[in-house]
Amino acid sequence: MFEARLVQGSLLKKVLDAIKELLNEASWDCADSGIQLQAMDNSHVSLVSVNLRAEGFDKYRCDRNLIMGMDLTSMSKILKCAANDDIITMKAQDNADTVTFIFESPSQEKVSDYEMKLMNLDQDHLGIPETDYACVIKLPSGEFARICRDLSNFGESIVIACSKEGVKFSAAGDIGTGNIKLAQTSSVDKEEEAVIIEMQEPVTLTFACRYLNMFTKATPLSPQVSLSMSPDVPLVVEYSIGDIGQIQYFLAPKIDD
């Protein structure tokens, strides 16, 4: 028996919004410790990893490890039926071929349930090595989304250059060039408005706008985002999912032909 109840059901809705453009289908691996999803986008350029800790749920039970393969378009359609303040419960029997989503209004006066067919997905799981990144940039997630959107007007790629002076995002194309520099904030009223740069060595890497823009669909999940970079390894774009977990996107840097 698997059952996970989340009072802050809107978090699950936002997680789906954050992955559904990148992934058509994916497996949710349910274990005693929580729920994880790891999947590559169709073109195998990026990797998404979602981790939801068991302790983060208001009720969590997983008697046996369970892999739930889901069509994310269908899952998203079902979660759209939940109101933002609904309590969401996911439920499945051991070895089941369906999962049930239960939505309860805060007053408990309306309860809906939707059953969805599970899929058998043969997906490769990739081992992600522990990495000490040369640069870790924390910035407001809305700012990052804005930068990606604005620079996408100029070209297909964004160059992210991190140095001790700050971080510079650049793009170049037919209409010209764009540069956005962010310095580390010296003092801020709110922690989520801060730009914090932890740097061991300067790093400059180039990434595809298309993917960065898809990653920013996670913006509603968290006021801050972190970008981790090292030379010649994938960028990690990480958003926390409330207090219950995090979503990480990995994107290989572009290389010169």
């Binding site: 195998h44 350029v45 990739l126 081992g127 994107l251 290389i255 032909d257």
Partner: peptide, 14 residues
């Protein structure tokens, strides 16, 4: 021109 490598190049199957 730059090209986009696959994420497979960096992470091995576990």
């Amino acid at each position: 021109m730059s090209k986009q490598p696959s994420i497979f190049k960096f992470f091995s199957k576990s």
